[in-house]
Design a protein around this nucleic acid. Sequence first.
DNA 1: AACCATACCTCGAACTAAAAGGTATAACAA
DNA 2: TTGTTATACCTTTTAGTTCGAGGTATGGTT
Lengths: 112, 112
Amino acid sequence: MAKSNPPFMSGVPELLLLRLLDNREMYGYELVRSIKEATGEAISLGEGVIYPVLHSLERTGSLQARRKPVGGRTRVYYSLTKQGRGRLRDLQDDWRRIQSGIETALESPGHA
Amino acid sequence: MAKSNPPFMSGVPELLLLRLLDNREMYGYELVRSIKEATGEAISLGEGVIYPVLHSLERTGSLQARRKPVGGRTRVYYSLTKQGRGRLRDLQDDWRRIQSGIETALESPGHA
DNA sequence: AACCATACCTCGAACTAAAAGGTATAACAA
DNA sequence: TTGTTATACCTTTTAGTTCGAGGTATGGTT
């Protein structure tokens, strides 16, 4: 019972998070809105997606968390580790590969 | 308990199938190899993905099936219906939207 | 006091894709 | 003739992701 590979396009939420955090550290609630904004409303990922991914990225060493109290509330700021930057490059490459694969398929012979 | 929307990038296998069938009618086994080829090996979808999607597209009226005996075996050829061509346009638009959304996010301020 | 926005989090249901298995014919090689 | 490989269809099982709704808590606004 060989372990099944992840679905071929499942790295996108992870990619978007890492890309945003490559600019500056941010906290979860902020990232939820930033993704929507940065993609021009094209993609909207809820908290139920973001938080688990952040935790998983922290567990696997791509992100580093820092709790920071701000006006009575506590925010958890995330920043990229060195490993995280490598992971970002990998995911970016994966994305370009499949993106251009699809592009090729869509453009072939008979386009409208 | 409202029904959950489909995942934000789930239309791709369907899109690729419809796009290939917009050129000419093809059968399932052929489509499996064609997708791999047309995407420059970037995407490889197995029969366990292709056949169910074909059946679903036929059920919902986007595809039309025609059984055709060829050299002792029987092939099921699929072709686009008018509705299928509309569906193809919609999925293409969806794809462009999210593709350029991601593009935008990846390009923003500090690219390498 | 009621309400909304912020800010964190988790869980269950729904859905998708991956992999493997199942049937059957034809063609080729040992 | 037996075995293997390729064609061609299909389903089922399993694994993984995403969605949506929920739950807690603080602070500001009406």
